[in-house]
């Protein structure tokens, strides 16, 4: 196995173009597990840890209202440095693994692995994030919604590397919640994220660990967005009716197509998602009502 250690992004992209079979490694919290179990013996590893530009974040876009997070920024820094700007992503990051894993693991790695159970995916979907992919051919932005193609499959071309993820800083409430079989160091039985987008009169909602890919709960998003807009609640929020929360939860559950597996049955996952959706929406809306008032 070759171990490639580029010092710059340009070098890394050149290597990836030459060696599309090289597996990128940053924190190693996913790749090393597979190597240790001999589930995978790649011909080459492409170590990204020396590339400084992948380890920084900055606020870009008009008024700095989008945060660009380098692919190798670890969860710990997202929690500590971006907790206020990107509350949903920080919440999800706090539930990843253990402190040691949060020190090493990265959102870029989460995206690269594209596991349906990845903790940050529902938040990225609900928050309208965009994945920045680069190759020697250039750089492109892939909406998170188009990024997840199948179990552990994403929209990257063989010569591409994930360089960053762009997440809108909406200054509006976001929530993330998951069910696990213990409180840490566990892979979610199911997870859910909700993000309010008042500027667009819209709600984002997405499920994890409950379908072959993380996915948006589009029907639930449309129902709730329409409901809130038609009752003028973005301007003057009122406590949400139980019937609205319930319908939202049901639609979220319908968005999932879970399976029975060792972590939980499909029926339980659907049920739990509806509970998570109702609760997180309740928290987010309470927060929003407080802010507007």
């Amino acid at each position: 196995m070759d171990f490639l250690r580029p010092d710059t992004l340009a070098e890394a992209l050149a290597l990836k173009a030459q060696r599309p079979d090289a597996v990128p490694i940053a924190g190693g919290t996913d790749v090393m597990v597979e190597l240790n179990f001999d589930h995978r013996r790649p011909a080459a590893l492409l170590d990204l840890t020396r590339i400084a530009e992948l380890r920084s974040w900055d606020a870009d876009g008009d008024n700095g209202d989008t945060v660009r997070i380098g692919a190798c920024v670890p969860y710990t820094r997202i929690i500590e440095e971006l907790g206020e700007r990107l509350p949903g992503l920080a919440m999800a990051s706090r539930t990843v693994g253990s402190p040691q894993i949060r020190n090493r693991g990265t959102v870029g790695g989460n995206l690269g692995a594209a596991s349906p159970a990845g903790d940050t995916h529902p938040v990225l979907l609900a928050a309208d994030a965009t994945v920045e992919a680069a190759s020697t051919r250039g750089t492109r932005l892939i909406p998170a919604t188009d990024f997840y193609l199948g179990v552990k499959r994403n929209a990257l071309e063989p010569d591409e590397l994930i360089t960053a993820v762009h997440v809108p800083a909406t200054r509006a409430p976001q929530q993330f919640s998951k069910v696990g079989t213990r409180n840490a160091m566990v892979i979610a039985v199911c997870s859910f994220a909700v993000a309010l987008h008042p500027a667009q009169n819209r709600v984002g909602a997405a499920v994890g660990s409950a379908a072959p890919t993380p996915r948006r709960a589009s029907a639930a998003e449309e129902f709730l967005s329409a409901e809130l807009t038609s009752t003028n609640q973005w301007e003057s929020p009122k406590p949400l009716l139980d019937s609205v929360k319930r319908r939202f939860g049901d639609l979220v559950a319908e968005a999932a197509s879970p399976i029975d597996d060792v972590r939980g049955s499909a029926a339980y996952r659907k049920h739990a998602l509806s509970v998570l959706a109702r609760r997180t929406l309740g928290w987010a809306w309470q927060d929003y009502s407080g802010k507007v008032a």
Binding site: I101, A117, G118, T181, I187, I259, D261, V262
Partner: peptide, 28 residues
């Protein structure tokens, strides 16, 4: 009839389950 098989955590997929429909991987 529920409790006979599932129960534990599920994650790395243990042995011989590379092709399961659902994920492995340490730090999701």
């Amino acid at each position: 009839g529920v409790p006979t098989t599932p129960g534990a955590g599920g994650g790395l997929g243990s042995v011989n389950v590379d092709d399961q429909a659902y994920p492995r991987g340490g730090a999701e």
